Amino acid sequence: MRRREARIRQLEQERDEREARIFQLFPRLAEIKEVQAEIGLDLARLYLNRPTRFRMTFDELREWSVRLSREREALLRQHGIDPHELEVHWDCPACRNTGWIREAAGGDEVSPPRKCACLIQEEIEDLYRAAGLTGPLREQTFDRFDLTVYPPEHRKHNAGVLEDCRRFAESVASGTARGSLLLQGPVGLGKTFLACAIGNRVIAAGKTVGYFTLSEFIDLVRSQKFDEDRSSAIQPLLEADLIILDDLGAEKVTDFVAQELFNLINLRLNRQLPMVASTNLLPTELEDTYGERIASRLLYGFEALTLKGNDVRRVLRKRASGGAR
C-alpha cells in the first residue's frame, strides 16, 4: 500500500504539472477551476446552513457551475486541448490506483469495498518475489512438464508422480494439506521442476511460499540468528503455507546445518504445515549425510515420490540442436 500511495502522489503531481503548463497559456481555465471550487464550497455551506461567499441560492450556484463547465469545454475545444490532460492518468482507472473498488449497494447502503484485480495481481507478484520463484523458475508449471523426455518404459510411472504432485499442490492451495512430499531420483530428472510447479500453483492461489536450497536457507537463518534487529523476521517465513527445500545433499553439512534443518522439518511436521524437499541422495545416503533424526523424518514423515529415467538435459540439448526424440 505504501508503493501505491507513492504512485498516486506521483501521478497527481504529473497531472498538476500538465495543468500548470496549460493554465499558464490559458489563464481563464485556471479562473474557472478556482471559481468552481468556491461554488462547491458554497453548496456545502448551504447544506450546513452556514454563511456563503456568493450569497446565491442552491439553484443559482448549480446553474452558474453548469455555465462555467460549458465555457471550459468550449475553451478546450477551441485550443485543441484534450480534457484528459487535466486529469490524473491512473494506471488502473477502475480503482484509481487505490487497489479497492467501492460500489453503491442501493439506497443509502454502501457495499463493502472489494479488491481490484490490479491489487490481486500485485499481491501475487509480491508472493513470487518473496518466495524466490522468479525468472525461469516461475515458468516451471505442471502444464510444461514434458513426459516425452523420459524413456518410454518410465513415462507411465513419472506421469503418476506428476499427478501426485498436482494433487498435493491443489491440497496446499485449498488449505487442506497436512502432509509433505519428498521428491527423489538421480540428477536431471525434473525434481526441481516439479517442486517449482507445486510452488507456482500454490502462489497462484494467493498462498505464501518459501523456496530455498538448503545453503540459502542456512545463510538466512545465520544472518537472522546473529542480528538482534532481525531475529524475529524469519518466523513468518518458517510458518509459510508451503516451504520448498530444493536439492538436499548438495551442500556441506555441519552440526549447525544439521540442527537448523532438523528444527525446520520438525516444526513443519509438528504443526502439520506442508513442505516439499528434493534430493538426489538414496535413503541410506540421507542417513549418512544428515543423521538418523533427519533421515527418519524425511523418509517416514514425508510421502516419497521417485522419478525414474535418465538425465533429461541430454534429451533437451539434443532437441535444441535439431536432433530427433
Rank of each mutant, 00 (worst) to 15 (best):
50 R>P: 06
44 A>S: 09
38 E>G: 08
7 R>E: 13
66 V>M: 12
55 R>Y: 07
67 R>Y: 00
15 R>C: 14
59 D>E: 11
30 A>Y: 01
50 R>F: 04
67 R>E: 06
64 W>P: 06
9 R>W: 05
37 A>E: 14
37 A>N: 13
34 E>P: 09
26 F>K: 10
31 E>Q: 08
40 G>M: 02
38 E>W: 05
42 D>K: 00
40 G>L: 02
35 V>L: 13
60 E>H: 00
27 P>D: 09
24 Q>S: 13
63 E>D: 09
44 A>G: 14
8 I>C: 05
42 D>L: 00
61 L>T: 00
20 A>H: 10
33 K>N: 07
31 E>R: 06
3 R>Q: 12
22 I>T: 10
54 F>S: 03
18 R>Y: 06
32 I>V: 03
30 A>P: 10
6 A>C: 07
64 W>D: 04
61 L>S: 01
29 L>C: 08
59 D>M: 03
47 Y>I: 05
18 R>F: 04
56 M>N: 06
53 R>V: 12
30 A>I: 12
6 A>H: 11
54 F>H: 08
64 W>Q: 11
43 L>V: 04
20 A>V: 09
65 S>A: 09
8 I>K: 15
28 R>I: 13
15 R>T: 05
11 L>Q: 11
66 V>D: 12
4 R>M: 04
23 F>R: 11
60 E>L: 02
52 T>G: 00
5 E>I: 10
55 R>T: 13
12 E>D: 10
56 M>D: 05
58 F>M: 10
54 F>N: 02
16 D>N: 09
64 W>R: 15
37 A>W: 02
38 E>V: 14
28 R>S: 08
34 E>Q: 06
28 R>T: 07
52 T>L: 01
4 R>K: 07
46 L>D: 01
60 E>M: 03
59 D>H: 01
13 Q>M: 11
47 Y>D: 07
18 R>A: 05
65 S>G: 08
39 I>C: 04
27 P>M: 07
37 A>L: 12
4 R>H: 03
40 G>A: 06
48 L>R: 10
30 A>H: 11
49 N>R: 14
59 D>I: 00
55 R>M: 07
58 F>L: 08
58 F>R: 14
22 I>P: 10
9 R>F: 04
44 A>M: 12
19 E>G: 10
19 E>I: 12
21 R>F: 10
6 A>E: 15
10 Q>T: 14
55 R>V: 14
30 A>T: 10
25 L>R: 15
25 L>G: 14
17 E>M: 07
8 I>A: 09
48 L>C: 05
44 A>Q: 10
67 R>H: 02
8 I>S: 10
21 R>H: 09
15 R>A: 13
30 A>D: 11
62 R>K: 13
23 F>L: 14
50 R>S: 08
61 L>F: 01
36 Q>M: 13
27 P>I: 05
48 L>G: 03
18 R>H: 04
34 E>F: 01
41 L>I: 14
42 D>E: 01
18 R>K: 04
28 R>D: 05
58 F>G: 11
43 L>A: 03
3 R>A: 14
59 D>W: 01
52 T>M: 00
65 S>P: 07
48 L>T: 08
39 I>A: 03
56 M>R: 11
55 R>N: 15
24 Q>C: 13
8 I>R: 15
19 E>R: 15
12 E>Q: 15
56 M>H: 06
41 L>M: 14
61 L>H: 00
31 E>G: 04
38 E>Y: 02
54 F>G: 03
20 A>D: 11
50 R>E: 12
9 R>T: 05
57 T>H: 00
45 R>S: 03
3 R>W: 14
